[in-house]
Computed example of a mutant assay.
Amino acid sequence: MSRNIVAILRGVTPPEVEAVSEALVDCGITRIEVPLNSPDAFASIERLASRFGAVALIGGGTVLTVDEVARLHDCGARLVVSPNMNPDVIRATRSAGMRSYPGVMTPTECFAALDAGASGLKLFPGSLIGPDGLRALRAVLPTATEVLAVGGAAPDNFVQWMAAGASGFGIGTALYRPGDTAAGVRKKAQAVVAAFDASSGGQ
């Protein structure tokens, strides 16, 4: 079963990234981003794309420039996640055949992102907007718009976010913190997946 959970491996290093990601994939989390402000992020992404590209959507996060999009494409990435809404980054991502999830907070940003070709929206920071804010946005967004709640979404509030219209989540520290072992990540992933399945009715 494919779950709309993006694992955010902020701070991960190339020597550990494959073992950590293997634990995630084994638990059913098959969307993985390495933020570009992680140590040697492009090397980690290249490793993941080579090993897991056939079974998982691998990409970069905290992507701010068109040049970074090009480097990600060269690494074999297929996913570009940003904290902001930059139409040039969105268009470059889509032109390269990759999926684009820009960070948005307001209706203006949401519609500008969609107009630029975004694959979906990263509602960020989710802790400031909350489920009530998402519910208001959902009233005006096109029905099929994919919205990921990021920053403030966690297993204990998946139900509230889903009820407000979240399509899925970007999950960071609830899955990985720098220094976590692969075994520790596996335990966290199992808990996140169980909460997600319970919240979404197994969809």
Rank of each mutant, 00 (worst) to 15 (best):
A154G: 13
I171G: 08
I90P: 01
L64Y: 13
A54V: 00
A43M: 04
G202A: 12
R177Y: 00
A194F: 05
A163K: 14
P107S: 11
F111N: 04
E18C: 12
A77G: 12
A92S: 15
P155S: 13
E18R: 13
A149K: 02
G97Q: 09
L137S: 07
I5K: 02
G133S: 09
V80L: 09
A182N: 08
F169C: 04
R31M: 01
G60N: 12
E46D: 06
V193D: 11
V147G: 12
L123V: 08
L123Y: 08
G152A: 10
A174N: 14
G117Q: 05
Y101R: 00
A139N: 12
A163L: 11
A116K: 02
V150C: 10
I90F: 02
R138N: 12
A182M: 06
G60D: 03
I45E: 00
V66Y: 13
E16M: 04
P83C: 04
P125H: 07
D197W: 08
A113Q: 05
S82R: 07
P178D: 12
A56Y: 07
T108D: 10
L72M: 09
C75K: 13
R186W: 06
T106F: 07
P14A: 14
L57Y: 02
G11R: 01
V193H: 10
T13L: 04
T181Q: 01
I5Q: 07
F42Y: 14
M162C: 15
D132G: 11
P178H: 10
G152D: 04
G170T: 04
L114S: 05
S82M: 07
L48D: 04
E18Q: 12
S2Y: 08
S38K: 03
F124H: 02
F52S: 10
L24K: 05
M105F: 13
G97N: 10
V192K: 03
G120F: 06
E16T: 14
A198Y: 09
A149Y: 05
L141R: 07
S127H: 14
R78P: 00
A7S: 14
T181D: 01
N4M: 14
L36K: 03
P178M: 07
G133I: 01
G97A: 13
L137M: 12
T108C: 09
R138A: 09
A195T: 05
R31C: 03
V69A: 09
Q203M: 13
Q160I: 05
R135Y: 03
A41P: 02
G179L: 05
M98K: 13
E22C: 05
P39D: 05
A92L: 11
V80P: 09
G117L: 05
A56I: 09
S167W: 10
Q203E: 14
V20Y: 11
F196S: 02
R31Y: 01
R51W: 01
V185H: 13
F169I: 02
G165N: 11
E16G: 01
R99G: 03
V63S: 09
R3A: 07
M105S: 15
G11K: 04
A113F: 06
A166Y: 09
P142T: 11
L36A: 06
S199K: 11
A191R: 14
R138V: 08
R177M: 10
G133H: 10
G170S: 10
A113D: 07
A49V: 03
L64V: 11
A163D: 15
R31D: 03
